[in-house]
Computed example of a mutant assay.
Amino acid sequence: MVNILEDDFKYIINSEVDIDKFRDSSVLITGATGLIGSLLTRFFLYLNSRRNYKINIYAVIRNQDKAEKLYKNYSTNDLNYIVADLEHDNVNVLGNIDYVVHAAAVTKSKLLISKPVDVIKISINGTEKILDLAVKKGVKSVVYLSSMEIYGQPKIQGIIREDNLGAIDLTNPRSCYPESKRLCENLCAAYNHQYGLNVKVARLAQTFGAGVLNSENRVFAQFVRSIINGENIVLHTEGKSEGNYVYTADALKAILMLLLSGTPGEAYNVVNENNHTTIKQMASDVIANFGSSRQKVVIDIPKENMGYAPEVHMKLSGEKLEKLGWKPQFDLNEMYSRLISWMDD
């Protein structure tokens, strides 16, 4: 199923993003073994191997063995591993850096409730180190990857734009994730104000598609495994939360566009407005479109705290990013079709 990923890369190359501006540049990507970080790394490797872009890639990772397995099918002559624990270690780069994408984050639900202090420290300390490095190196542009969870519980109904922040329960340890993301966004704004750093924030909706890792255990991957195995889809919540979604290739386009344009110090929602539904409805649609008549949606709520985000009802606006020229193309049905093909391989 590498062809699906290659199709995605061709789609990005032929999109509204001026990819040629990355030719002969150097790019640093944190979280290069995570979903978005690995896809960006593979995209730049693809540009080098198929288009001779001569991009020098610095991949910040925690586990080199994991990285080498992930990139074993790619020519890695232009890939430089930087092994670092961003909570404690500085990131040392000898050469110049043109662009930075800070994608590293703790996202596993159980860790968010079992080690909330660690989550906050990794988030804040890591972001500070990367922004300091960007200032030191005089980079052209930085994109920090944030999350739709920063909106908390919206105070308004209807379309949620970038300035419509809601409440976050600060007594809930699980809030370590959205609250630390908020502070990191403010750090980005502060670095822009104090040091003139060209940094923008990409607030990603739930992102999935071709290229997800074997270790992925978020709800969309669980749905697909159930379809492939001919099993019922089991929900561990009532499934009433309203989700906002975007395909991986569309998300990559957004990040690349923000590296090249946008207003420094500001945040942008990355969401396909047409991809909005409840978790339960999405599960039902996946079975209807890709499953069998024997499969159904089952609700089985565990007694233990699984670390899931609080139930939320909101629909994100993608208008601000779309005004820059970004155009998401893949709807939920296409997202699942491509993801099933990828994971089934």
Score class of each variant (00 low, 15 high):
S317H: 03
E68C: 02
K315L: 01
I19L: 15
V91L: 04
K323G: 01
A205C: 07
I255C: 06
I113F: 11
L35T: 02
C184N: 15
N217S: 10
G325T: 10
N198V: 11
K115R: 13
M148R: 04
G37Q: 09
S147F: 13
V27R: 08
N52L: 12
D163N: 12
N80P: 04
N214G: 15
N244C: 07
D98G: 03
I120F: 13
A84M: 02
D18M: 04
R174G: 05
N14F: 07
D132H: 06
D8L: 06
D300C: 11
C184A: 13
N186Y: 15
A67Y: 03
N164D: 15
S141N: 09
E185T: 05
N232R: 09
L204T: 03
E6C: 01
V83I: 14
D98S: 13
F330T: 05
F44R: 10
G325K: 10
H88F: 14
I82Y: 02
S109L: 07
Y58N: 05
S226F: 11
S109M: 09
E311V: 14
T41Y: 15
I168Y: 04
K115W: 00
N96C: 03
K129R: 15
N48Y: 10
S146N: 03
A267D: 01
A288T: 04
G126M: 14
M314Q: 03
Y81N: 11
L145W: 09
V312T: 10
F223P: 06
I301D: 02
K181D: 02
N56K: 15
Y74G: 01
R42D: 01
D118Q: 14
S146L: 04
I159W: 12
G31L: 02
G34I: 00
G209N: 06
N172Y: 10
K69N: 12
P264N: 10
L321F: 14
D118I: 02
S26F: 10
L70Q: 08
L35Y: 13
V106L: 09
N92W: 01
V246L: 11
E128S: 05
I61P: 00
G230Y: 03
V117P: 00
Y53K: 10
A104S: 14
A202D: 03
D89I: 02
L321C: 08
L145F: 08
Y144K: 02
N3C: 09
D344N: 14
S26D: 13
D18P: 13
